[in-house]
């Protein structure tokens, strides 16, 4: 490749690089720098060093938010992955029915987030919402979705699970890349449908599934924001569905403590990175070996 071509390519990438620098890198660095200040964006900032971090660790609401976020990720990520995998295995074919099924699965994901949240606010209404009306008609218990901590948390998980379109699409694409010849060979050596799935299909998909799990973890730690803001308002008391993003938002934009909110963000980033590292350590080697064996 000659200089001319390389320069042309860099020029093409330039707008994106500029965009990332100005819209992601600079604000991120600025936000993290703000974590050591007490700043309300009105008066000049006041340097407080590690005070924000110390206050965070003492803050019971922060601890609850952290626990809620971790619990959510621990429940929602495997659930979403399992559902995405299950749906992909059912719907990866090329028939019209499968295509229709795929579009249906995508619908909750492509709906604008605020519409999604408002619709769920209506669905989860304990007395007038369709969910409890249907459950009641079927003789099943009708939990008070928004006024009890347990059901409220499950409601947020439910909202998250339905929006698995991104993971679903990736898993479908990966499933289609599994070579049919390997499946046929396994079939000929006597493996049944289940055997083929476990010994051929899944191991080949393993590395990609790990990537999806990692991406999903990142998403899960942030995606609770709008549901918690619009549907549950962080409640029911005490803070049952207050997650880290909502906690940061409230402290920043409602109480004008942007430094404190930034400190929360730093913790969130460290948390995300740690979880990703743990996931990779735990499953990375396993998935690679599974793939090689298949």
């Amino acid at each position: 490749m000659d200089q001319h071509e390389r320069r042309g390519l860099w020029l093409m990438a330039a707008p994106f690089v500029l965009g990332v620098t100005v819209l992601v890198v600079m604000p991120a660095v600025g936000s993290f720098a703000m974590a050591v200040y007490e700043w309300d964006l009105v008066r000049p900032p006041r340097f407080v060093g590690l005070d924000n971090l110390r206050e965070l660790l003492d803050d019971p609401v922060f601890r609850i938010s952290l626990r809620n976020s971790l619990l959510y990720a621990a429940v929602a990520v495997p659930l979403r992955l399992l559902c995405a995998l299950g749906l992909a295995l059912l719907l990866y074919g090329h028939s019209r029915l499968h295509a229709a099924g795929r579009v249906a699965v995508l619908v909750p994901t492509v709906i604008p987030d605020v519409v999604y949240a408002l619709v769920w606010l209506w669905i989860l209404n304990p007395i007038y919402g369709p969910l409890n009306l249907v459950l009641g008609a079927a003789g099943l218990p009708t939990p008070s979705w928004l006024s009890q901590p347990g059901p409220a948390r499950w409601a947020v998980v439910l909202m998250g699970v339905f929006q698995l379109g991104e993971a679903f699409l990736i898993v479908v694409a990966v499933r289609r890349l599994v070579p049919e010849e390997l499946q046929e060979i396994a079939a000929m050596s006597g493996a049944g449908r289940w055997g083929r799935l476990v010994r051929v299909t899944l191991p080949i998909m393993a590395p990609a599934l790990l990537l999806v799990a990692m991406r999903d973890t990142i998403v899960s730690l942030q995606s609770t924001f709008l549901p918690a803001l619009i549907v549950t308002a962080g409640g029911p008391p005490p803070y049952a569905t207050t997650y880290l993003p909502l906690f940061a938002y409230r402290n920043g934009f409602e109480y004008l403590r942007y430094g404190y909110a930034s400190a929360t963000t730093v913790v969130m980033l460290v948390l995300t990175a740690s979880i990703l590292w743990l996931l990779y350590r735990a499953f990375g080697r396993w998935s690679r070996r599974a793939w090689e064996r298949a």
């Binding site: 703000m34 993003p245 938002y249 930034s262 963000t265 995300t272």
Partner: peptide, 19 residues
């Protein structure tokens, strides 16, 4: 690109506001 995709949205709120 990957870094841009992984930075939490909340980290960008305030920074972008100031910008």
């Amino acid at each position: 690109t990957v870094v841009a995709a992984a930075v939490p949205v909340t980290a960008l709120f305030v920074g972008r506001l100031v910008l």
